[in-house]
Design a protein around this nucleic acid. Structure first.
Ligand SMILES: [Mn+2]
Ligand SMILES: [Mn+2]
Ligand SMILES: [Zn+2]
Ligand SMILES: [Zn+2]
Lengths: 149, 149
DNA sequence: GTAAAACTGAAAATCTTTCGCATCTTGATC
DNA sequence: GATCAAGATGCGAAAGATTTTCAGTTTTAC
């Protein structure tokens, strides 16, 4: 049917979803599209849901959570647990990075520090842990917020 | 009255609570006592609550959360947000440290790495953030769990 | 096309944490 | 020690985030 037809941009998402081993469905295509082109790199499920609402999409919040969790399992997105309630999701850029978060405005800066990564590996090894993952978040006040008082 | 009498060990807790600017009440003394002598350095509110139940103490879960939050505000304990729902609390040893957590058995190893601390400060400074705090958790499999398969 | 398998939205259920409030304690004062 | 106001407690209810359930729908393989 005509409704099944997708606009050009969706072809990319369709393929990514297929490659991830998931079936191509409207909610998945839509949500991936939002993550890719919404401007905000770090979004909560609620953020995604609101964006869907603003686009008059009939997708429930439960579905948003379900799809984001599936995307996480498939390696398409990463889930982050910063301070303060909700998890935030971001497209998996392929390369690991850590975060600097402003406690006032929520601004996020991403960074990678090879020295820190190496030290972590060393610490894990010294304690006979097989390292699987890590989470480093530095909290502070960004320059804008410092200026504002 | 006789019920008010406290055993010797409690004197220490009483003083710590007073020093923190809090009134000395049975739940506070009991909870601080558990944190100090329960053996587990990192406990969830639920863990503390269960320990209280096992000691036939009539203290509600809401009170446990309230007291732990007060202790946190007073600097007596630190709250940690590891993966997996519940926050865990530990006595404030005075000196900051980070954690290595086993994903299989939950075992926790504490560590401090001056190199990492310095790099974090540098990264914050480079991005014009006034650093306030940070959270570093390394997840892995401990040697025991590796051996078990 | 068809049917099995996978997916969906809405509502209900969980899980952790916090609130509202009537009742009880603590600690300072007489 | 008795008094009393400020502060704490316990309980159940509520909140907020996320997951599960379930009956109807869609996708994909043949
Ligand atoms: Mn990021
Ligand atoms: Mn610790
Ligand atoms: Zn800011
Ligand atoms: Zn282990």
């Amino acid at each position: 049917m005509a409704e099944t037809q997708q606009d050009g941009e969706s072809q990319l998402e369709n393929q990514q979803i297929k490659d991830a081993g998931l079936k191509v469905t409207a909610p998945r295509v839509k949500i991936l599209g939002i993550l890719e082109s919404c401007g905000k790199r770090h979004m909560s499920a609620e953020d995604v849901y609101k964006e869907l609402l603003s686009q008059d999409e009939e997708i429930g919040l439960a579905t948003v959570y379900r799809v984001l969790t599936q995307f996480e399992g498939a390696g398409l997105v990463c889930r982050r647990h910063f301070e303060g309630g909700q998890s935030v999701f971001e497209l998996n850029s392929g390369e690991h990075h850590d975060h600097l978060v402003c406690l006032k405005c929520g601004r996020i800066v991403e960074f990678v520090d090879p020295t820190i990564e190496k030290r972590q590996a060393k610490i894990a090894a010294e304690n006979h842990f097989k390292i699987e993952d890590h989470s480093l978040v530095v909290y502070g006040i960004c320059s804008d917020c410092q200026a504002k008082g």
